[in-house]
Write a protein that binds this DNA or RNA. Structure first.
Lengths: 363, 363
DNA sequence: CTGAAAGCGCTTACAG
DNA sequence: CTGAAAGCGCTTACAG
């Protein structure tokens, strides 16, 4: 026998009638005001739970109350990491009794103004821009947010942003990677899909240069850049393509650093197909620490993006801004990436004439 | 010199003052009422665009108007396909001037009631439940939606759902795959990670049985099930594990059908490591048509999920429900999956005694 | 501790 | 075609 459906309650007024209280008392009980009789508060909250009554966010927001909403914009990049970011974000916001309002920014379209207006209309208390495009400090959507006094944090903006942003320290990460390769004896490094032509490529090149110059070596002399365009789709194939391109060169680098794990993997497969043995003949670093990097043979050395730390830092910074005066700026925070050493990196082939045939075969 | 910032307008009343109109006229112009002077409507809409004014969704919703919002719930599965689904969904809704309200359902927690209450509180006009868990027809969150007269469509529910749902026809897909294998001569098929112990496994097994019985063959005699548990994380490793398990058997199947591409790939790698040649010694089918399936050697034959078609069917069904009487039910619609033939499938090894050493080596 | 009033921004009848 | 009224559900001063 089904339980009798309780009186349908869809407003504080109805709940008040149901409980024999005035709706003012009910409202105060819902919001945990101290002036209300503790027992009454209990009774109201229990009834809410039993009846599944949720106060209308519209009435609440219209009245001018808090919405406990954070606008979160994403770019529609088809990467598994994105899902991890969303998941962690939702959990951290929920722990603070906030709710994300997710919006996807279409790649290529006018990026954020429409979305940011929607956040404002929905009275989001704060905004997180994930992978925000062309991340200048003065983009129109940032101006809009500032003007409306909505604090915002950019997560991994594509550009130089000094304030209210969380960045992965790609520069330090690539410096570590390069230092590791240098220590092993590598003096000729190839960058696969990385150069200064796109925003996140700049700090990577800087990191490589940092590590080299610490040893008195020059970037121009030690580094080859292998890049075709900025496309990142079909990344495995792009890696293969770059490897093919590389194989056409007279001298191969002894180590490669790829833009991401997919490119590294594709390149590795293509090099192996051409008869090279990784890491004996050539070392390869990936980036992102994706599942595939544990599956290749040899397993790929790579760099972990520290997604949970990045998201946690973002949420922390946002709530610090939320509790500060409007217009407050906080210095951008850099999260350190973690180098993950596996089996695709080794010392370079010994420089014995005749041994390095493969490297000079095509000269 | 920066453009002079226009008078800040944040309500229809302010906009009306700005334009020298009454706020009633403005409201009607915004909503495109025919009674308003066409020129006036133009002027109001132009001003809205110039000033970036968006009417408050809260005022609108509170008044009882349409919210043009569709609640969309996802499970937090870390699969790249999820992002594709979200992207397509957003585009299709936007084309109909609707907006998705995304919510992530935490794996393992009480799945949907809280989320569905939020959708109702936000006055979502319709709801899409993606990968809705334990998809019975009578889940509490479905009852809640029905009771509140919010039409909903389940996309790929985990269970038998006959109404208001979009399903990928896994049964037909696996029947095609099995038929293809049977035609090639395979009479001993292994299912990797697939059995009837989990919802989406049932139609797959049915499909295999369909194809076999069409030839008068029996499932029990032709099919081996290789499964460890329902875990799908670290799917590559799970594939490897299943392959190891398989290699311990006295007789190997001549063809494998895996739960997904990652499991197929992991299994293939492990089998290759053990000295088997794919597809000469054993054929393998994946599922999902993920990027990795084009990258393995040999490239993986697989089944494409037809994400755009699935999402389009979902949105279409939802809008049909939206335009129907409350309580309308539509029969579940099955979208046909697409078998993608690549290089991992071939006829079974010829049954010459002495040739099939590998298959019997461990007996 | 509780009751009555006001108003957030909007739109839909209802008059003119 | 346009003006004035009412009310969606809520919460915050303001009285008692």
């Amino acid at each position: 026998m089904p339980k009798r459906r309780p009186t349908s309650v869809n407003s504080t007024a109805a709940l008040a009638r149901h409980l024999g209280l005035s709706r003012w008392t009910v409202s105060r009980a819902i919001n945990g005001h101290p002036e209300v009789n503790a027992e009454t508060t209990q009774r109201v909250q229990a009834a809410m739970r039993d009846l599944g009554f949720v106060p209308s966010p519209f009435g609440r927001a219209l009245r001018g109350g808090r919405t406990r909403t954070i606008g979160v914009s994403f770019r529609e990049l088809e990467t598994p990491i994105l899902v991890r970011k969303v998941t962690v974000m939702q959990k951290l916001l929920r722990a603070r009794h906030y709710r994300p309002l997710f919006e996807l920014i279409e790649e290529g379209s006018d990026p954020g103004l429409e979305v940011v207006r929607h956040f404002a209309a929905m009275r989001a208390e704060g905004v997180v821009l994930v992978d925000s495009p062309v991340g200048a400090e003065s983009a129109p959507w940032l101006d809009f947010l500032a003007q409306n006094r909505i604090p915002s944090v950019q997560l991994e903006p594509r550009g130089l942003v000094a304030h209210n942003a969380i960045l992965l320290d790609r520069r330090a990460a690539l410096a570590h990677v390069t230092e590791h390769l240098y220590q092993l004896g590598h003096r000729h490094i190839g960058l696969l899909g990385i150069d200064r032509s796109f925003p996140l490529g700049v700090p990577r090149c800087d990191g490589v240069a940092d590590a080299l110059s610490a040893h008195g070596a020059r970037f121009e002399e030690c580094v080859d850049t292998i890049i075709q365009s900025n496309r990142r789709f079909e990344a495995f194939d792009y890696g293969r393509e770059l490897a093919e391109f590389l194989l056409g060169r007279p001298v191969l680098p002894t180590a490669l650093i790829a833009l991401n794990d997919e490119i590294a993997t594709g390149a590795m497969w293509q090099l192996q197909r051409a008869g090279l043995v990784v890491p004996r003949d050539i070392s390869i670093f990936g980036f992102d620490n994706q599942p595939i990097s544990t599956q290749t043979a040899p397993r790929l050395s790579t760099v972990d993006q520290q997604v949970p730390e990045m998201i946690a830092a973002t949420v922390e910074m946002l709530f610090e801004l939320l509790q500060s005066l409007p217009g407050t700026t906080l210095p951008a925070r850099c999260v350190q990436a973690q180098v993950v050493l596996r089996d695709s990196v080794a010392p370079p082939p010994v420089a014995v004439p005749g041994y390095k045939t493969r490297r000079h075969a095509r000269s």
